[in-house]
């Protein structure tokens, strides 16, 4: 696996790798992915993919069972809160674009 491929996949997965880790993980990923390529031996042209373990369909919610949590419980495990304890506080979002919401980003000039 090429170095930039390992870096790319680590970036997609949001995992920071040291120089040494890039080498060791790179070699390990190569061997694991290489083993997985064994699947290419099989002809599966007419086979339907099977993403689910059982053939269940239409599992609608019929018995609502989640009352909202008290806010204290909802925020209890947060690494950081705002001073009034109402929001999750996260590192300042600058310029990183949410695919879903322009409002989350900031305009540059």
């Amino acid at each position: 696996m090429k170095r930039e491929d390992v870096e790319h996949v680590a970036h997609l997965a949001r995992i920071q790798l040291s120089e040494e880790e890039l080498q060791t993980f790179g070699a390990q990923l190569e061997s694991i992915l290489g083993y997985m390529e064994k699947l290419g031996e099989l002809n599966t042209d007419d086979v339907e993919p099977m993403p689910y373990a059982v053939d269940v369909k239409n599992a609608y919610r019929d018995n609502p069972d989640h009352s909202p949590l008290p806010r204290d419980a909802a925020l209890k495990n947060a690494p950081q809160l705002d001073p009034e304890g109402k929001f999750f506080a996260v590192p300042k979002v600058i310029g990183e674009i949410s695919p879903n919401q322009g409002k989350s980003g900031e305009a540059g000039s």
Binding site: G95, G105, E106, S109
Partner: peptide, 25 residues
């Protein structure tokens, strides 16, 4: 209109079937 700040690398959303939700007919 102004460009959003920050570099925008091509997104790779890695869509795949949501295994927690059986399909709907």
């Amino acid at each position: 209109t102004v460009a959003m700040r920050g570099k925008e690398t091509a997104q790779d959303y890695r869509y795949f079937p949501e295994p927690d939700i059986p399909p709907l007919e």
